[in-house]
């Protein structure tokens, strides 16, 4: 079996969960492992499980209870290990999200298994599971094989395409997992939301990023207006984050977030290697820059040479017009 560790929020599956079912199906095909099971842990798991299609997975395991009311990597790793054992999982597939990146190493360590992380492609190699993953911030691609009987995978958001699944819901199986409270020594106290209702950077289909070419922090309103017209997330360069114009969770690049949206706008951004590192796997890149020689134009699909402060309002207007 392949075990897909899904994520839900407020009782609804997150976007990455649908991508995980595609990735798990590919891992299953590569290993001929006998099917896919899914796992949901914590508050709302039962509710979210109803949305998992029986065409995608054979069953959904649900782990709930006091030990999982607040997130803890230690307790959640225990739940994953119990589910892996119960399904005799050959591979355990997470999203390379803040959750998956936190729990997957603990699971891998407990199983003495390899963790293929930030994976963009899965395939079989000599009977083992192998992956392609960007390294050196996307400046190279590594082909990595997991040796050993079991392995753990964390797939990059937006790398696997979610498939429409109709048909009936998958059977749900509650799994009871005991956790000694004394063994859990780090636990979430509270979660503060900061996205302000906009799409999350690493998951968004469209990202509009601004750089020093915006001239002053107030002009980022133009970036936000275009982003809102497109339903996009807002990103920024390190130059403007370090200048205090934008919060640091918006930084895209080698020391910021890595994004792979379908469409990326680089506005007033020169295209330094460290910025490119975080966005070069975007499918389509649009550059807007006053300087025709800016390096960003060497790797964009579409571009406009001109003043961003003049172009942005016009773009926003055009987008509104086309969307009716």
């Amino acid at each position: 079996m392949i075990l897909a560790v899904l994520e839900a929020q407020d009782g609804a599956l997150k976007k990455i969960s649908h991508e995980l079912m595609t990735a798990a199906a590919e891992a299953d095909a590569a290993l001929a492992s006998g099917g896919v099971a899914a796992l949901l842990i914590g508050p709302g798991a039962q509710e979210a499980a109803k949305a998992v299609s029986g065409a995608a997975v054979q069953e959904v395991l649900v782990v709930e209870g006091d030990a999982f009311a607040r997130y803890s990597a230690q307790a959640y790793a225990r739940a994953v290990l119990a589910a892996a054992q119960s399904t005799s999982a050959h591979a355990i597939v997470f999203g390379a999200t803040s959750f998956g990146r936190d729990v997957a190493p603990r699971v891998a360590a407990a199983l003495s298994a390899g963790l293929l992380t930030d994976v963009t492609e899965l395939f079989a190699k000599g009977g083992a599971l192998a992956a392609r993953r960007p390294v050196y911030a996307g400046k190279a691609i590594a082909e990595v094989e997991a040796t050993g009987d079991q392995c753990v995978v964390a797939v990059r958001p937006n790398a696997f395409t979610a498939k429409e699944q109709d048909g009936s819901a998958a059977p749900v199986r509650p799994l009871s997992v005991e956790v000694d409270p004394g063994s859990v020594r780090a636990k979430v106290r509270e979660i503060r939301r900061e996205s302000g209702g906009r799409a999350e950077l690493s998951e968004a289909d469209i990202v509009v990023s601004g750089g020093r070419g915006l001239k002053e922090p107030g002009n980022f309103a133009l970036i936000e207006q275009l982003a809102d017209a497109l339903g996009a997330a807002v990103g920024a360069t390190r130059a403007v984050v370090d200048a205090g114009w934008r919060p640091h969770h918006e930084q895209v690049g080698q020391t910021g977030k890595t994004v792979s949206p379908g469409l990326y706008f680089a506005v007033g951004i020169s295209g330094a290697v460290q910025h490119i590192a975080g966005m070069s796997s975007s499918r389509t890149i649009v550059a807007i820059n006053r300087d025709a020689e800016a390096p960003i134009f060497k790797m964009c699909d579409y571009g406009i040479v001109g003043d961003a402060l003049e172009i942005l309002p016009q773009l926003t207007q055009e987008v509104h017009r086309i969307k009716g």
């Binding site: 190279a140 691609i141 082909e143 094989e145 060497k298 964009c300 579409y302 571009g303 406009i304």
Partner: peptide
């Protein structure tokens, strides 16, 4: 070890696309 690098490659190069120059903003 439990992971082995099979190969390391450069990503496919991106070619420059359609860049609009000398047009007014609108």
């Amino acid at each position: 070890p439990v992971l082995r690098i099979g190969a390391l490659q450069l990503p496919p190069a991106r070619s420059a696309g359609k860049v609009l120059t000398g047009m007014d903003a609108q």
